[in-house]
Amino acid sequence: MATSPLPALDNSDPRLLLAVENRVKNIFVTQSEDTRIKKAENVNYIPVVTETSSKVLEAGVNTLQKTLVLKKQAELDEVDKQLALKRQEFKSCAEALAQRRSELEIKQQQTKERAMKFEKFVAENEAKRHRALRKYEAAREQNISKKKEKEDLTQQLKHLRARHQVLKERMAKYKIYEDYLMKTLDYLPSTYHDNGSESLVMPIIRRHETLSITHQELLQRLGRLEEEVEQGQRQLRTMKHGHSIKKLMANKELSELQSELETLKEKNKQAEVNLLLEQGLSREKVEEVGSLLMAINNLAEQCYLPAYGPLENMDTLTMMDMVKEYILDKADTERRARRLMESGSALTSRTALTDKRDRGSMKNIGSKTQIKSSSKASRKSEMTS
């Protein structure tokens, strides 16, 4: 039930000041002036009290209950004022702390947003870098293939030029034979020209022409086969090169994934450490918990009860319950033994008290008989006297 506070008292209130006046002493008119002066010398005048009421109340001894109530009321008002000041200070401190907490939360949110933006920026840059690397690898592969084709074409051009030079030299070598045959034809008679188609030379010439044509076709076919073989070799080389590039890219991605895995592991370890720090756990506490578990296991081994089953399958709470039950059982046994011992000691003390009482009653009876006999003897002596 809430009590209503008493009204506050102000020390400057004139009603609380104790006004004491120097009253005039009662003097009879019939007294002479000399006696008045002589008696005035031994008069103790009442001094004027100029102190405050609270000091007067503190210094007073034979004060009334109401005055004591006023004194306590003044002290209570002072305590209320101090309490109000402390509440105001606490309220201002709480408001300042709340404001600081809100500011810290805002700053934390801003840092989180900045971290998220930075992570997004890093991810975008990483994606751009991967795309640029892929484009660079593709362009490099294309440049390498173009260079290979250029080298092959230059090699073919050199080969064709060398062949052309060889054929040109061969034509220059056989030019004299052609000129000689043309001159011999010019010197032959016309009748020989008319019957030349029927002669034996024409089948040889035709045979040579067919052989040269088949030779050209075979050379062309061989060139085509060589080109196909070279194309297949180029394709094989490009496939091997692409396979090696893909292997390198796969190894690179694997190394990047491994590095990401290591960073994630580090982040997880840091997060676990931060979590342990936030929860107030430290290495000393962990060691203390370990020692506590070892102590519990030792107590469980010492206080083992077969009703709880095998000790290896018990958890910590079950072990503690078992130890508690064991201790309670031992304490109950000890209390029973003490009760039995106390009951035995009480019986022995009772018997001793009864023996003492019996002995005291016998002594009292003896003393009473002695007193009676002495009183009778004194009476007899008095009668005889």
Rank of each mutant, 00 (worst) to 15 (best):
residue 86 K to S: 12
residue 134 R to S: 01
residue 376 K to W: 09
residue 227 E to L: 02
residue 55 K to A: 12
residue 175 K to L: 05
residue 124 E to F: 11
residue 9 L to P: 01
residue 303 C to M: 07
residue 122 V to W: 05
residue 85 L to T: 03
residue 315 D to M: 05
residue 257 L to F: 06
residue 368 K to S: 15
residue 130 H to S: 15
residue 2 A to Q: 06
residue 297 N to H: 09
residue 206 R to N: 13
residue 125 N to E: 15
residue 335 R to T: 05
residue 244 S to H: 04
residue 91 K to W: 01
residue 205 I to K: 03
residue 151 E to A: 02
residue 372 K to H: 13
residue 57 L to V: 08
residue 216 Q to L: 13
residue 228 E to N: 02
residue 147 K to R: 09
residue 105 E to K: 06
residue 80 D to V: 01
residue 145 S to D: 08
residue 190 S to P: 06
residue 369 T to H: 15
residue 57 L to M: 12
residue 226 E to R: 08
residue 85 L to A: 08
residue 335 R to Y: 09
residue 265 K to M: 10
residue 53 S to C: 10
residue 199 S to V: 00
residue 311 L to G: 05
residue 294 M to W: 02
residue 165 Q to F: 03
residue 35 T to R: 12
residue 157 L to G: 01
residue 45 Y to R: 12
residue 161 R to N: 03
residue 71 K to T: 00
residue 291 S to Y: 12
residue 181 L to M: 09
residue 17 L to E: 05
residue 20 V to F: 09
residue 355 D to F: 10
residue 281 L to I: 14
residue 141 E to H: 13
residue 129 R to L: 15
residue 61 V to G: 07
residue 226 E to I: 01
residue 295 A to S: 08
residue 25 K to S: 09
residue 80 D to C: 00
residue 261 L to R: 11
residue 379 R to W: 14
residue 20 V to P: 03
residue 224 R to W: 00
residue 302 Q to E: 07
residue 175 K to I: 02
residue 316 T to A: 10
residue 235 Q to D: 11
residue 104 L to G: 01
residue 352 A to Q: 12
residue 363 K to L: 15
residue 276 L to A: 02
residue 309 G to H: 07
residue 283 R to N: 07
residue 36 R to P: 02
residue 41 E to R: 07
residue 347 L to I: 05
residue 57 L to T: 09
residue 43 V to D: 14
residue 338 R to L: 15
residue 18 L to T: 07
residue 31 Q to D: 14
residue 188 L to M: 13
residue 150 K to H: 05
residue 277 L to Q: 05
residue 66 K to C: 03
residue 337 A to I: 05
residue 334 E to V: 06
residue 88 Q to F: 09
residue 14 P to Q: 05
residue 325 E to L: 10
residue 323 V to A: 08
residue 259 S to V: 06
residue 111 T to K: 14
residue 103 E to V: 12
residue 205 I to T: 08
residue 203 P to C: 12
residue 180 Y to P: 00
residue 267 K to L: 09
residue 197 S to Q: 02
residue 150 K to N: 09
residue 316 T to Y: 06
residue 266 E to I: 11
residue 324 K to F: 10
residue 104 L to I: 07
residue 273 V to S: 10
residue 189 P to R: 02
residue 313 N to G: 07
residue 169 E to P: 01
residue 103 E to D: 12
residue 222 L to P: 02
residue 13 D to L: 03
residue 6 L to G: 04
residue 310 P to L: 11
residue 81 K to C: 03
residue 72 K to I: 02
residue 127 A to V: 11
residue 29 V to L: 14
residue 357 R to Q: 13
